[in-house]
């Protein structure tokens, strides 16, 4: 049976080195670039012949736009408008990465912990940066919950700091684990299908359902990542 983790292997396509650090263009990079291009084509192409009454493609583009815009409006409010391109980039990049990964023979770059961690650090870092830019040192009051008794503060503040710092970890592990588990499961059932011969119909049926489920997970995880980023942004803008 084929190794279900084989699909996560990284191959160098164009070896590159910068200052002794390996920055080769790999299959992972290829699909990142594909995600960027596909997103651009999807968004710009849909608006090519922009009309007052949209067609199908334009509708899809606009629905995606308003979906993320509403998400941001509901969690952060009007002050969050200026960060919309950032939130939208996060959403589209993860969504495209997840959805491209659902095609056979492709590589899912969101199934690598380092990529999701990088994304989480970008989201977390930008949110923290905005918090400090808006509130300065006052931003530290985020770690002091309102209405907490003073004698509890020595306990509460470290917990708050810890939970704050663990945000990028939980954010990245959630996406990575979901994508990796789903793709591994698909591969395992595909292996069963091949191994069982005629009886492989049963795991094939399961795989069909799993594929549908994985597409749902792909969209859902992009949504979850985005809404959590919005919530962190809301913390940094409004301080609770």
């Amino acid at each position: 049976m084929a190794d279900p983790l084989h699909q996560f292997e990284i191959h160098k396509l164009i070896p590159l080195k910068l200052d002794g650090i390996d920055i080769s263009f790999t299959n992972s990079s290829l699909f990142m670039v594909s995600a960027v291009l596909l997103t651009t084509v999807f968004l710009v192409g849909g608006m090519m012949r922009s009309q007052l009454i949209p067609g199908r493609w334009q509708s899809m583009t606009e629905i995606t736009y308003s979906f993320v815009a509403n998400l941001l409006d509901e969690t952060v409010g009007l002050k969050g408008r200026q960060y919309f391109p950032f939130i939208f980039t996060i959403f589209m990049f993860i969504l495209m990465g997840n959805l491209i990964g659902m095609l056979p023979y492709t590589f899912t770059f969101t199934s690598h912990i380092i990529v999701t961690f990088g994304l989480a650090v970008i989201a977390f870092g930008v949110a923290t940066l905005i918090g400090f830019m808006r509130h300065g040192f006052h931003y530290f009051t985020l770690f002091v919950p309102k209405g907490a008794p003073v004698y509890m503060l020595p306990l509460i503040v470290p917990i708050e700091i810890l939970s704050y710092l663990s945000r990028p970890i939980s954010l990245s592990v959630r996406l990575f684990a979901n994508m990796m588990a789903g793709h591994t499961m698909l591969k395992v059932f595909a292996g069963f299908t091949v191994a069982l011969g005629i009886f492989g119909v049963a795991p094939l049926a399961v795989n069909t359902l799993l594929t549908a489920f994985e597409i749902l997970v792909a969209v859902l995880q992009a949504y979850v990542f985005t809404i959590l980023t919005c919530i962190y942004l809301q913390d940094s803008i409004n301080l609770h």
């Binding site: 590159l16 650090i21 080769s24 992972s28």
Partner: peptide, 9 residues
């Protein structure tokens, strides 16, 4: 592979 992935990300 981390450096390359982060770089391209």
């Amino acid at each position: 592979t981390f450096a390359s992935q982060l770089f391209w990300l």
